[in-house]
Amino acid sequence: MASIQLNNIVKRFGSFVGVENMSLDIADEEFLVLLGPSGCGKTTTMRMIAGLEHPTGGQIVIGGEVVNEIDARDRDVAMVFQGYALYPNMSIYDNIRFPLRMRKVPADQHDRLIRRAAEMVELGAFLDRKPGALSGGQRQRAALARAVVREPQVFLMDEPLSNLDAKLRASMRVQIKHMQRQLKVTTVYVTHDQIEAMTLADRIVIMNRGIIQQVGTPDEIYSDPANTFVAGFIGSPPMNLLAGEARDGIFRSEGIEVPCPRTVTGSVTLGIRPEDCTVGGGHLQGMVYGVEPTGDITYLTVQTGKRAVEIKAARDFRAPIDTPISIGFDLSRLYFFSENGERIRRPA
């Protein structure tokens, strides 16, 4: 119910730069996922939007209003904290009720709202307990329930599912998405889980060392990475990145020879996703290093020189290790990156 703009936000802790010159336009009702390695500034960004951290520079706009000088309690934001932050002396019921009381939601609606939120996170049976008497995953769900019990302008969720088992996580994921679509509340969501990011996000923001690397739809992030960081971060296993030399329309590296656009020359990095490689084909010659069947797919690791290349092979693929193998690349899905890591795009 509100758009968010971050205009050249900077956050320094002393001389350490937590977030560097970040500009981001989050549309009304959008589900935006922040993705990045530990310590890249995701929580810091969230805390600045919530008003818990004052940006060193730049402007934060929520719903058309500059909120830099507006206190956290007066921003209509609900946040799930990475460390849960449940009130230890209150029962789960009272924990979930706290924002309702503070935001002056009429008392006769409390019980219904609390139970609905608790049901959503499958915590209905634990409302009388204190946080100390819950497991980590239950606490995390209680924290989630406390955030979604009311309808704020913005949801901020800092890894709200990180501590749940795979099954529960999948069901929570669907529920969060459903709820967000239903309530139409602008949501910023932090996760380490790429599946979560891909399935939930309208757009994904990839961050590294406090700097935005790329903003785009899950599709764009996956199939059109802006640089080697994004390419090497997304996908599991992520894109193979192979440094080599390109000249006269041929890219060469140890054990590798593939055609490339003539515009690509000099020291470059070739990127190829594991699923765009096939066994047999002759672009890469190497030795089988490992074969890992998982049931629906077999992960094949091939060694060329000192490098390991990951390949998603057919489910029934098997090969003894240390035998020579030839790998083919889908030539329409090659990516080239310049020496500084930026993508070399084909001239349009």
Binding site: A72, M79, G83, F98, R103
Partner: peptide, 14 residues
């Protein structure tokens, strides 16, 4: 933990 107060503040407490 300071996060407890942060949570209370975002929940709207003075």
């Amino acid at each position: 933990p300071k996060e407890l107060e942060d949570a209370a503040r975002t929940d709207g407490a003075g």
